[in-house]
Design a protein around this nucleic acid. Structure first.
Lengths: 194, 194
DNA sequence: AAGGCTATATATAAAGA
DNA sequence: TTCTTTATATATAGCCT
């Protein structure tokens, strides 16, 4: 309804882009802006045909994600990008010594899209052994290999590599997310229109 | 300068949210909106303390990413989220039979953050063997295990699991990104202010 | 914690430099 | 192509319900 006199609202106010102190208002802003972000992501994909993936952890550590054509498809592609793959895998150690207590080793399926030029790619990865060696020496994509083609020996090498990886991960308590398996809200948003 | 008479611009026009046909316009829109999307993501993170990761592949398949505190940190967390991890790993096959030709097996380092309640977590994953079995039977996180603790036997089991994974991936030529190692533009955007 | 509402801050489609 | 300039479409902060 209409208000006979005077402004009925102060309208949108300008705010500083820095942490909102008030907890509830921070939550409200989170919800509103998360929606807006997903909408923008969706529009970008639709308008330009771009692939987009957005992953958000709320202040309460709940997960929200949007992706076109899908979050996983985009992240898989991302993982297969040279520079990025390297960035994700080797995780530099800043602590030091080694792994005394048991830590998880998280592995994640990444690339291998059966695209048109996969055939061409095949050539350069024909020799798995060479690949592993090359990989151990260098940095990226060493973990790519045709497991079937590996013999017991290479297989061991492979596992060794995995262990090494585990060690490298070691301790970097900088991350934000604390593992919370049981009560997981999780909500995959996959589409939005107007 | 000013235009003596009449509108000097038609101003922003309303557009339908569907693929822009004109190639150059599409490119311009992509650039503008990508910037906007990253800015929004940045503000969301700053205002609410949320963790955000945005990965975008341009129509030309160039990669652009934004993340707070970092793309990798967020994606690692994402990978460790039960529901999501499962979604990424098992990739349902729609084709059918098996894997006759060689495909890559992409593995990706994922979780294990040394958070505060890791200790509590430790309990439930004390017995690695049990974990593997349990995993093989069920669906998610079967690939999590302390490699060091595995004996030859379990080790083989582990690899078998990996092969299975490879098979599951099999054929799903739906992805968008065609592998293009050499000429990769890549640009990590990590910050934005105004 | 979710939805409206209003008034305003922002994002951007077009066109020009 | 990439950066301005307009003029207008959208996103949202503060308030209410």
């Amino acid at each position: 309804m209409v208000h006979p006199l005077g402004r009925t609202s102060m309208g949108r106010q300008r705010i500083e882009i820095r942490r909102i102190d008030n907890k509830e208002r921070r939550q409200v802003t989170f919800t509103k802006r998360r929606g807006g972000l997903f909408k923008k992501a969706s529009e970008l994909a639709l308008l330009t045909g771009a692939s987009v993936a957005v992953v958000v952890f709320s202040p309460a550590k709940h997960v929200y994600a949007f992706g076109h054509p899908s979050v996983d498809a985009v992240l898989r592609s991302y993982a297969s990008v040279p520079g990025e793959a390297a960035a994700v895998a080797p995780v530099p150690v800043h602590g030091g010594s080694g792994g005394e207590d048991v830590d998880l080793l998280g592995l994640r399926l990444a690339a291998d899209d059966t695209g048109a030029q996969v055939a061409a790619e095949h050539a350069r990865m024909r020799d798995v052994a060479a690949r592993i060696v090359q990989a151990k020496a260098g940095r990226r994509f060493w973990w790519e290999a045709d497991v079937d083609a590996l013999g017991e020996a290479e297989l061991l090498e492979f596992v060794t590599a995995l262990k090494k990886l585990r060690d490298n991960v070691g301790r970097h308590a900088n991350t934000l997310l604390a593992p919370q398996p049981p009560p997981l809200p999780l909500q995959q948003k996959q589409r939005r229109r107007r």
